[in-house]
Amino acid sequence: MPQLEQVEFFISQLFWLGVFFVILFSVLTYITLPKIRAFLNQRDDFIKSHISKQDELIKKAESIIENYEAKLTEAKNEASQIINDAKDKALKESEDLIKATEEKIQHEIKQTEERVAKEKDTAISELNDQLKDSATNFLSKVTNIEKGNINL
């Protein structure tokens, strides 16, 4: 087995193993691995910063949505308030109008009735007077008594 027979090359193998292992170890430790690590860290940092930025933006968007919804409900409430007010006002106005009209009509009916009654009275009294006059005239002509002396 050459591994155990070629003893004369043991030192050579150890020497070159040492040389190349040290070279590899040193270059990897001081140049290559820090470069790779820096590269990976940079990428991680970039991703992390973007994730935190994204979280911030999501929060902002959520607050905007909340704000919007609050404003929307407020506006809806206001609108229904206005509609209710308008309905109430319109109802009241129409009721008032109906009431006022009814009162006016009642009043006019009353007035008309009063005027009719008054006219009736005057007509009756006039008729009475006329009847009295004609009766006086008739009596004075019949009896020749002066009109002024006749008292009915």
Binding site: E8, F9, I11, S12, Q13, F20, V27, K35
Partner: peptide, 29 residues
Amino acid sequence: GFDISFTNSALWMTITTAFILIFFTVPFL
């Protein structure tokens, strides 16, 4: 007085070392 001949073993150690260094360093230069 020590025989530290550059042998085929040393040659392949050289190739291995060079390959590892190139493989891991060059992409990040």
